[in-house]
């Protein structure tokens, strides 16, 4: 996975309307008209959002059916989600190691004090 690939995904996810569209598509493929219904924006505006999502590989639009249904593509979302998870893991595991290390340092300190006495 390249950073550039991720950038495109994140840029596409930047907009609340686009996120809402994706959330809607998570429950199944649907037509553009149906997608546009909950939003108070024009059809061309919806089409523009769909293009951004399509370019990011987040959705595909069937060329077979006349009504060109939109479908969610999960892979880029999964990659983006993996990145967050990877980053979180970096820190959770580093902090685990720090916790162990702090215990070692304190045990060493105690030993030293014990010797002094």
């Amino acid at each position: 996975m390249t950073a550039d690939h991720l950038s495109t995904t994140f840029a596409a996810l930047a907009d609340p309307t686009r996120r809402a569209i994706l959330a809607r598509l998570a429950s199944g493929e649907t037509s553009v008209a149906e997608l546009a219904a909950p939003f108070q924006i024009s059809a061309p505006a919806i089409t523009k959002h769909l293009k951004v999502l399509e370019n990011a590989g987040l959705i595909t639009r069937s060329r077979l059916a006349q009504w060109r249904p939109c479908k969610l593509e999960a892979t880029p979302l999964q990659e983006a989600s993996d990145f967050i998870e990877q980053y979180r893991q970096h820190w959770e595991q580093s902090l685990d190691r720090l916790d162990t290390y702090l215990k070692q340092l304190q045990a060493r300190e105690k030993k030293r004090e014990h010797k002094k006495r």
């Binding site: 950038s7 994140f10 840029a11 996810l13 930047a14 996120r19 998570a26 979302l77 967050i84 979180r88």
Partner: peptide, 18 residues
């Protein structure tokens, strides 16, 4: 490039969608 702005949004507001 706006991508970074959405990273954490992904894990919060995105939770439900995910």
């Amino acid at each position: 490039r706006k991508e970074a702005a959405n990273l954490a949004g992904y894990s919060t507001s995105w939770g439900e969608a995910l």
